[in-house]
């Protein structure tokens, strides 16, 4: 009976572990960072979020939309309603048709979704070498593949890492991934060895691999050759709060901002979770007492 219990427990653990195994491992994982939003009590750093919004607005928004986020959602970042209103009003949104049947431009309102840089996917693809720049609303959540093996992912889950692996990916992709003259080691990170390929053949393959035209080498991009040119350079923007705009700082801030954008309910979720777990712990304790009390005279 006890053994059976143990094997069931092992089964449950393994099954949980299996479930989260990442999609086909695409080489190494970017180094991990400690974010303020991990752990049971972790929450976003408002200053990071606000700086991240600035990076998004001044750099990313030139090509990437964020259709699922609305200006009104920015209250979460610590902005007042008036600030949001004037922020939104700096964008023009096409509305209509009006009574004459014409489309017209008006300043965006708090209730509008973030304005997309392109009115449709065809234009977006045509202006970007045939590839539609993906919408960034869910970019972190959809890249949160975990940290590799079942065991690592399971431990990360117990540490409430949340979407941190996705944040790491985005942050390193735009922050440290671009290398002008990649070494063999760099190439090995993004172009893994095929199953059954000899070391020599693998080495020759990646040495001889030529960058396709219109691509940029990025160490953290699966397949190495990325269609997006390097977006961030030292001091390419000036932070409103005076933080030095290093490449790593901007990458970190925008990745944290996009983590928030992936799930604006993130903080509410964890705050509610603490209360629910505390309640259930008390309830469980109470039920243990009740059960013992009820069964006290039964020999079984």
């Amino acid at each position: 009976m006890r053994k059976f219990g143990l094997s069931i427990a092992a089964a449950a653990l393994l099954t949980l572990g299996v479930s989260s195994q990442a999609s086909a491992a695409t080489g190494a994982h970017p180094p991990t960072t400690d974010y303020s939003f991990t752990g049971f009590f972790g929450s976003f750093d408002r200053a990071e979020l606000q700086r991240g919004l600035q990076v998004y607005k001044q750099v990313c928004a030139a090509c990437h939309g964020m259709d699922l986020v609305h200006y009104r959602d920015l209250v979460d970042l610590g902005y007042s309603e008036d600030q949001i209103k004037s922020f939104a009003a700096t964008f023009q949104v096409t509305d209509g048709p009006n009574d004459d049947g014409d489309m017209f431009d008006r300043p965006a309102e708090a209730s509008d979704a973030f304005i997309s840089p392109f009115s449709n996917d065809k234009i977006a693809a045509a202006s970007n070498g045939g590839v539609v720049p993906p919408d960034l609303s869910l970019i972190v959540k959809s890249r949160a593949n975990g940290y590799g093996g079942i065991g690592q992912n399971f431990l990360a889950m117990l540490q409430i890492k949340g979407y941190a692996s996705g944040t790491d990916y985005v942050s390193h992709l735009v922050g440290t991934g671009y290398i002008e003259e990649p070494t063999l080691e760099d190439k090995m990170v993004c172009m893994p060895q095929n199953a059954g390929e000899t070391d020599a053949a693998y080495k020759t393959r990646i040495e001889e691999h030529q960058a396709p035209p219109g691509t940029y080498f990025n160490k953290w991009f699966a397949g190495c050759y990325f269609k997006m040119p390097q977006p961030l350079y030292e001091d390419s923007i000036e932070y409103e709060d005076g933080t030095p705009a290093t490449k790593e700082q901007m990458a970190h801030d925008v990745a944290v901002f996009l983590t928030w954008a992936s799930e604006p309910a993130f903080e509410t979720r964890k705050e509610t979770g603490i209360k629910v777990l505390l309640f259930l712990a008390v309830f469980t304790g109470l039920m243990i007492a009740v059960k013992r009390n009820v069964w006290r005279n039964v020999k079984h």
Binding site: F283, L286, M287, A289, N293, N297, V298
Partner: peptide, 28 residues
């Protein structure tokens, strides 16, 4: 039979036990 007749329980005890059950139901 042994279960339904708590022969060794004092009344005070059973009062406390009732309270426990009501508390559990309340919390639930």
């Amino acid at each position: 039979a042994e279960a339904t007749q708590p022969n060794s329980d004092h009344e005070e005890d059973s009062g406390r036990r009732d309270f426990l059950n009501y508390l559990a139901i309340g919390v639930g």
